[in-house]
């Protein structure tokens, strides 16, 4: 035993200690498991439509129905304005990014609890699961973006709607980055706490519903009355959605400070999320 004690720490490849420091992200290890990220992502995409007749078409069905219902309820019945755009286009563009954000956040929040049995049997960097979720959401977003383009083509060809995208459409990758970082950051914070307090899973599902009504998905930002603007400005998602719509349809965009706020918020939550996750990663299996 003493002979083992005398071996210097440099000899060992790995030393497992009670806690790993919160700033030490296992980046190299995650990189070594990159194939697992890809395979989990593939599993998520494939398993969804195995043994279904329509297969991948189901990815389109959800958003299409949502757009149809929104057009009917919010456009026709409630007569909410749509920034002068054809309502289906307006709703579609909002739903696209919003559902990317909310489904991501919800899935990442639940990812630790849902995969508890897997985590209880084998080790791999736990961050692999949220990252694979992020990836499959991005691909789903890509697929659904195709649908937006088809819808756009339909309106351009069949109505007098003319499509003039703005220069700020180039910001799209950055906007997606912001949404991803916010979803990942917040998701990791919630996931970390939900290992102890399942209440969070319920809270997030409910919170997402509320947050959607506080975001310019079914109404344009310009529709928010001045008295509520200070509260509206607190929502870090709103400027991102607005920026996307204004870029896509060449509408004026004035929420630049809002976008700066969203960026700061994204960065902050991402760091916070990684820290919280790192803190529970080693031990959450014990009490999940």
């Amino acid at each position: 035993m003493n002979s083992f004690q005398r071996i210097s720490d440099d000899y060992w490849d790995r030393i497992l200690r009670p806690r790993s420091p919160w700033w030490k992200l296992p980046v190299r290890e995650i990189w070594e498991y990159r194939d697992l990220i890809l395979l989990l992502f593939r599993r998520d995409l494939i398993a969804v439509y195995k043994q279904t007749v329509l297969g991948p078409i189901w990815f389109f069905v959800g958003p299409l129905f949502t757009v149809a219902v929104y057009t009917l309820v919010f456009g026709r019945v409630a007569k909410l304005p749509s920034d002068g755009l054809p309502p289906p286009l307006f709703y579609m563009s909002g739903i696209l990014l919003w559902s990317f954000f909310s489904s991501n956040l919800t899935a990442i929040t639940g990812s630790l609890v849902q995969n508890a049995s897997l985590f209880g049997k084998v080790y791999f960097p736990r961050l692999v699961v949220p990252l694979s979720i992020l990836m499959s959401s991005l691909v789903k977003l890509g697929i659904q973006a195709l649908m937006l383009l088809l819808l756009l083509g339909y309106f351009v060809l069949n109505t007098d709607f003319s499509w003039k995208p703005g220069l700020s459409l180039c910001l799209l990758p950055f906007l997606l980055l912001l949404l991803s970082a916010t979803a990942l950051g917040l998701g990791l914070v919630f996931a970390s706490f939900s290992t102890r307090y399942r209440d969070l899973n319920h809270l997030v599902g409910f919170g997402m519903l509320l947050l959607m009504y506080a975001s310019p998905v079914i109404y344009p930002a310009s529709f928010v009355p001045a008295s509520l603007q200070p509260f509206f400005a607190l929502n870090p998602i709103a400027p991102i959605l607005e920026a996307f719509k204004s870029g896509l349809f060449g509408l004026p965009f004035s929420l630049w400070t809002g976008l700066a706020y969203s960026s700061a918020f994204a960065l902050f939550t991402l760091v916070l999320g990684l820290m919280a996750f790192q803190r529970v990663e080693g031990r959450f299996v014990d009490y999940i």
Partner: peptide
């Protein structure tokens, strides 16, 4: 490494794998 110790440490040389429960992560539909 499924869970972390409360105190003490484990030092390992080389890759480690465990057959604690086989079939981990098998997805029935795949």
């Amino acid at each position: 490494r499924i869970t972390a110790p409360s105190s003490g440490q484990i030092k390992q040389k080389g890759r480690m794998a465990s057959l604690l429960e086989v079939g981990t992560g098998f997805h029935p539909d795949l």
